[in-house]
Nucleic acid binder design. Structure first.
Length: 456
RNA sequence: GUGGUUGUAGCUCAGCUGGUUAGAGCGUCGGUUUGUGGUACCGAAAGUCGCCGGUUCGAACCCGGUCUUCCACCCCA
């Protein structure tokens, strides 16, 4: 009995048209990465669990796909552990490998492992799939591609400036106008937490603050109170909730809130450096926006935090994110190597471009010319011409079977093949080729030479 | 991981409060005679109604479980 074929939840097949579209995005991103001086690396699709576990917080650990050990793994588990039914402890005994969850941690591992071969600062890009055991939603998959560019070994804030330009360059090249690059700084968040007496509750504080535009001011305050942040501290946040105006005035407001915090003030200095650079250099289509509520956060961001929102009106989560992490390689034993990077969510970008109808029409590649099959000897003559065409860079093919001409023409139509060649007895006798333009319907008799030059 | 939602031919969907052989459009395939298409006309194939179980004389329709879809949390690209 044949079973109904299916693929796992949150994964997808891609047909030729979809692959073409995705390749178009890949190529656009890749060429911008290279123009900006990044070099490609690749890492394995799975890593040792110890490399990944604990790097993304508790939530992250849950979302990591674990790979079962080979062999009779259960026999090696002792009875006590087996009886205890403690999934966390059990997992580490029966699974020692896990699928890549993002590209940043494997990159950190790579840098530490290859530190002696790398010339710092090292600018690398990486375009590979990652896997998360999340529950799928629109624009959220369990297998998806990230396109990352990172620099390690430079504390210069010019990197941040460059990454904003890189975002702008990619989205401009894709024709996606009006993206919003949100920027924030971990030091500013820490500073605020310090000022309100919640420095030990930074994560709780930022997670709550991050929800501001989603659940509103009151609910955010409520959540903060529930997490043990004192009312007096929350009161000090009031100016934050009323933050409006242009970039400069928002920064001024922040300055006054943070003037007692050394770290917060440092964060503001960084922010001002970056924005001054961008103001001077300009952006083509993107908008840079300060967002103090932006706290998406991999726990390792220490400086700038970025997130990119699709143009207004498109219902989609962030299509890119990134930031500065001063001590990522520290986890793997290499101290004082600062990193900063950004990521593009290919699958979401594809959905947005589809939504806005921004894919160029010419990206689906099809064969340029189809030879009609009239029989054995005609096919042989066709194959000779096809060989010539291919050697001259023209994609060409012979319809493989001698079917009714109508069928063969229909096939050319369905595949959107722009030209058809008829090579039958009379053409062979006169050493000519009948070329038909499938759009205009025009036909002309050509020599092989002319055929090649016409199609090139 | 929590709560909700969806699932009928390849695709998009009908199918009244459970009642005989489950329908349509599009697509596919064949035909309208022999080397010319995207139009038209004729015809055909195609569904264990997501899967498993239950209630019932009888279920696509009711109930339970499971998988899948989408949504809201959580979190994130």
């Amino acid at each position: 009995m044949a079973q109904k074929p299916s693929i796992p939840k949150g994964t997808r097949d891609f047909n030729p048209e979809e692959v073409s579209k995705r390749n178009y995005i890949f190529n656009t991103i890749r060429s911008q990465f290279e123009v900006f001086g990044f070099q490609p690396i690749e890492t394995p699709s799975f890593e040792n669990s110890s490399t990944l576990m604990g790097k993304y917080g508790e939530e992250g650990d849950r979302l990591i796909f674990k790979i079962l050990n080979s062999g009779d793994y259960l026999s090696k588990v002792d009875d006590d552990l087996y009886q205890a039914k403690d999934s966390n402890r059990m997992t580490s005994r029966i699974s020692e490998k896990a699928l890549r969850y993002d590209l940043t941690v494997p990159f950190a591992r790579y840098v530490v492992q290859h530190q002696n071969e790398i010339d710092f600062p090292f600018k690398r890009y990486q375009i590979q799939p990652v896997w998360r055991a999340d529950r799928p939603q629109k624009g959220r998959f369990r297998e998806f591609y990230q396109c990352d560019a990172d620099v390690v070994g430079s504390k210069s804030l010019w990197q941040e400036v460059e990454f904003i330009q890189l975002y702008d360059a990619v989205f401009t090249a894709l024709g996606l106008k009006g993206t919003t690059i949100k920027i924030n700084n971990r030091k500013i968040l820490s500073g605020i937490a310090e000022v309100i007496g919640a420095q030990d509750k930074l994560i709780d504080f930022t997670v709550a603050l991050d929800k501001l535009d989603k659940i509103g001011e009151e609910k955010v305050k409520e959540e903060m109170l529930n997490k043990g942040i004192p009312q007096s501290g929350i009161d000090k946040l009031q100016p934050l909730f009323n933050l409006t105006g242009n970039f400069a005035s928002q920064v001024d407001e922040l300055k006054s809130i943070l003037n007692t915090s050394e770290e917060g003030t440092k964060g503001i200095e960084e922010l001002e450096f970056i924005t001054k650079g961008i103001e001077t250099l300009g952006l083509k289509t993107a908008i840079l926006q300060l967002d103090v509520t932006l706290a998406r956060g991999l726990n390792y961001y220490t400086g700038a935090i970025f997130e990119v929102a699709a143009p207004e009106g498109v219902k989609m989560g962030s299509i890119g994110g990134g930031g500065r992490y001063d001590d990522l390689t520290g986890i793997f034993g290499l101290k004082d190597v600062s990193g900063v990077g950004i990521s593009f969510g290919l699958d979401r970008i594809a959905l947005v471009l589809e939504d806005l109808n921004l894919f160029p029409e010419t990206i689906t590649n099809t064969v340029k010319v189809l030879f009609i099959n009239f029989g054995e000897s005609e096919s042989m003559a066709s194959m000779k011409a096809i060989k010539e065409l291919r050697e001259n860079g023209v994609s060409a093919e012979l319809f493989p079977d001698k079917k009714k001409t109508i069928k063969q023409f229909n096939y050319a139509n369905k595949r959107c093949i722009p030209f058809v060649v008829l090579l039958g007895e009379s053409e062979i006798a006169s050493k000519t080729y009948t070329l038909k333009n499938m759009n205009s319907g025009e036909q002309q008799q050509l020599t092989l030479e002319d055929l090649i030059s016409t199609l090139q």
